[in-house]
Design a protein around this nucleic acid. Sequence first.
DNA 1: TTGAAAGCGATACCAT
DNA 2: ATGGTATCGCTTTCAA
Lengths: 346, 346
Amino acid sequence: MGKTKKYSLKDIAEDLNVSKTTVSLVLNDKGNENKISQETQKRIKAYAKKNGYAPNQLARGLSRGKSEAIGLIVPDISDQFYAKIAGIIEKKAKKLGYNVVYSSTYEDSVEENKLIRSMLNRQIDGLIIASTQNNADDIQMLKHERVPFVLIDRHYPDKETDYVVVNNFKGMKIATEHILNLGRRKLGFISLNTPLDALNQRYNGFKAALNDCGIELDEKRVKTLNQGYFADEMPNAIKQLVENENVDSLVFGTHYLTMEGLRILKSINVKVPEEVAIVSFDETQAFDLISPPITAVIQPINDIGSLALEILLKKIENRKTTNKLNYENIILDLKLEVRKSCGIKD
Amino acid sequence: MGKTKKYSLKDIAEDLNVSKTTVSLVLNDKGNENKISQETQKRIKAYAKKNGYAPNQLARGLSRGKSEAIGLIVPDISDQFYAKIAGIIEKKAKKLGYNVVYSSTYEDSVEENKLIRSMLNRQIDGLIIASTQNNADDIQMLKHERVPFVLIDRHYPDKETDYVVVNNFKGMKIATEHILNLGRRKLGFISLNTPLDALNQRYNGFKAALNDCGIELDEKRVKTLNQGYFADEMPNAIKQLVENENVDSLVFGTHYLTMEGLRILKSINVKVPEEVAIVSFDETQAFDLISPPITAVIQPINDIGSLALEILLKKIENRKTTNKLNYENIILDLKLEVRKSCGIKD
DNA sequence: TTGAAAGCGATACCAT
DNA sequence: ATGGTATCGCTTTCAA
């Protein structure tokens, strides 16, 4: 079979009576530039191939101080949104010869800290991070150590870094205006009780739209649920909003809240959009198949992933050559996908 | 700040006037068993902590020949199903002190081969693989090299390995019987044109149910679409099935086919379940919110993930101590989640 | 109780 | 054109 033994550089060198250096050069395609004879090159390459030689990446990384791998840190890889982004980044990175190593923090900044350390200690060449936003120290450290990194989805507004995020404020403002334009006036808002800037911006966008329309915000109509318990808290939130507050529309801060909300609305037989209109920030796969199809603000997943990777690779390249510090700050616009859940103008 | 310099074992040793050995032992909690004085231990630990020392994992892995990391190889991390499994495995592995490194093959066996090699060369301690099923050589190699690994979701029926899969045959049989029991007799089947055993088993389950019911299979009612182009091919498939073949039910081989099929049915105004009943193998997030809610065979994602990890870790442990070769073959049963898309018995 | 030194598998500088 | 050797940062065996 020939597959039995695991060959190392040394093995090949000994078997072929050449030095490790020669083998290494040839196998890294530096044979010509180092004037290794064609014949030797051929022998080495053939032998390596025949025996399925593959370099030990740990040794290689240790020696070179780099690894051709980038790290991706997200809150939760099983979340559709991040899983998709991971997919985009991975595909593109592979094409460019980089491996991607990803891991989830589950919104725990201590975990985020560990992951960052651990990845650095694996000689990762750069990092793409959707941070818990509660880990400013590490961000500072990364800057300090000049580790190439770019923040996605969430950034630290008061720190200069590269990032690619979306315009949460504007996205939610557009969504809210859509409902307002349809003549609804009693809007409820359901979001998460977190310090995440994105959620706050969405809330601000909601308020701004109301304000522009001359409507006063009624705090009783905004519910912020707790991250881990939103499913438990949703029934009450919905009931209060539709039964006590008599809202004619519901604006959801993120896709899974929308889904859960929809479940409750269904269970208490509230008609969408006749009785209450629905708009969601971000969507999940089958939103177009739900009845009514859900109007939602769409995340530009592709752009987030590819831009982040491009910027990161540029950083990695530049680190060698220049010392210039200029940051790319990309704020992507969001589109509202209008479907049926808000009804139509009458 | 103290965070400036990156400390190595050597640095600590020099600063503290002890040897690298001592530091290494202490930091690996082998201080006591090597009778390093409590005081020295304290000094070292304190100093390491103060300076945020973390071992270089590459060096560590290289030296020990292992890495406390396991690899997870899936067809596509952005697929809900695999993303969820990845999440389960990651969470559990972390608790047990293992890192998880995952990567996607996009159903390309060459890519799978590369990934396996690459992970091995990163001194991964074990592998969990949802294989392309077109890579028997590597499976053989892994067995030969005694690399701990377990197959999930897809296995090689003619190779002895550990695996945890689901009973695709039975799952689809149950689903089909459900439709049959509701009195439908003209069933269409839409699946993918792949050599994947899982899809074949599902097809077999479908046929078996028909057969048990005394219905002859009409091949014109089964459509197999091409993996990458199913969305393009779906409209025709559906039209032929409902318009020419007059089917009264549609059985889908996997969740994304169901979704796409639903889109087409909707666009040509076919009523579900009145005109055609729908049953799906596997589901996606909002299947319960679609109207009608979609009846689907549910994958035991949690079990797949945790069992696979448990078996793998057991293997990793055992490799040191025993040479016994016994394989765990787990075939999980599937449940049908009955919703409304097949109508009810009349 | 602690230290010196070899080794893990590569890379890269300096000779020849 | 090719080889010797130090080095990367850690673990581990053997001595002292």
